[in-house]
Design a protein around this nucleic acid. Structure first.
Lengths: 235, 235
DNA sequence: TAGATTGTTAATCGATTAACAATC
DNA sequence: TAGATTGTTAATCGATTAACAATC
């Protein structure tokens, strides 16, 4: 059991907790710097990253600092070093096996994100209650009946799971996953799951995202109306 | 043109900008309170909402305050009033017609979110470059060839669009949408789009979300290893 | 009335931004 | 050297949390 976990212990000191905002920006830097690597750039500065992503360069530097990498004044960071540092910090340097539950359109879409494997997430199988789907494959990944999940989870020591089932089914799936010893859940169902405190959850609730967009659009439209009314008065 | 926009101008004073965090929590309250409405509850307090969603009741109150609703001490808020206040504040009270671009698995999944219409977003058509998809329907929504988008967008005065195409195609689609006069873009492609400043963008970048989950899992695993090593020393 | 809850103001906390020294 | 950039410390800003008066 301890041997099974040892590859998580890099011995490195970069285990500090860091703000969610920083964690969400690091993949942007990672992506941009990987593009630089492809065109052969060897170094990159925070100024450059900030300009490319329309972010303050000080913020970029603070974020990058969190990965523990040390740069060189006047030069910047080595491109391969920075890529490695971000990957190591995020835990993307060795992929964790994951199960996906729910092989509908959303589940199928998630199976199609090939880069997930480069980002520490290796989906090795998907599950669905629909017996007709069992045995088929999507994007080269096997779809299995849900009742095989408990046994397989135990045997394969799965620690991370993605829930892509309808809202009404999500809690039941979550319970199954908890029984199987899940440690982290990426939940795409629009419900708040009841889970033990030590299980990490990340909710991808599109209604919450939509709210932000909706309100901003509403404000913009109201402002536009006011502008037009002003013009009518003036004209 | 002005007449076309007038339903956005409610005349109400609830046009204040509010933090993204608040905007993302309001849909949770909305969902919970709608459930209460269904079982016939007439009033609800922040304490109750906070307990149900595992949030601080003061925070719930502050968020709800932003909607402009006035509650009654000792009682709480009227359930229908609160639902209406949240919907009005978010602009969910009258749905905006939207186009979806990209009818792959992800696009199909998004067409299946029936509740979007109750949340101010009415997807009226989807577009795809794949000629074989044109003319078909997914979840009752027509799939049209992408080259029809500019004309239709103009004619239907579409202001909001969802991008669900591969990363490489996203900027091209975005340009097309901007030409068509788009005001808000919900971008599911993992790229940062170059858009005019006055176009509202909301990026649903799963790699950014994954980073947060990955790092938390990594930290939890490291902590577990340390615990086990400690136990071995002790034992 | 007593007590729960809202509304509002103040305190705390943390993230972002600014300033500046160190370095190559 | 001059100047750009990192590393680090301080200032600012805003969100969360706490405190408390008002109210029914």
């Amino acid at each position: 059991m301890a041997a099974d976990l040892k590859n998580f212990d890099t011995g490195a000191p970069e285990g500090r907790a860091v703000s969610e905002a920083t964690l969400r920006r690091l993949p942007l830097y990672h992506r941009f710097v990987k593009e630089l690597a492809q065109i052969g750039n060897l170094v990159v500065s925070c100024t450059q990253i900030g300009a490319a992503l329309d972010l303050d360069s000080t913020q970029v530097r603070k974020d990058i600092e969190a990965t523990g990498i040390v740069g060189r004044p006047r030069v910047g960071y080595g491109v391969p070093d920075l890529i490695a540092a971000i990957e190591r910090f995020l835990g993307w340097d060795n992929a964790t096996d994951a199960f996906l539950v729910g092989a509908g359109h959303l589940g199928a879409a998630l199976l199609g994100y090939r880069r997930f494997e480069e980002c520490g997430l290796k989906i090795i199988a998907a599950f669905d209650t629909d017996a007709r789907k069992a045995g088929t494959e999507i994007h080269g990944k096997k779809i299995l009946p849900l009742d095989k999940l408990p046994d397989l989870m135990e045997r394969m020591k799965i620690r991370i799971a993605i829930i892509a089932v309808p809202a009404a089914a999500a809690q039941g799936v979550a319970d199954l996953l908890v029984d199987g010893g899940v440690r982290a859940v990426w939940n795409f169902a629009p419900v708040r799951l009841a889970l033990p405190q030590d299980v990490i959850v990340h909710n991808e609730d599109l209604y919450c995202s939509l709210a932000a967009l909706s309100q901003k659009l509403k404000l913009a439209m109201q402002a536009e109306v006011r502008r037009q009314q002003q013009q009518q008065q003036d004209g």
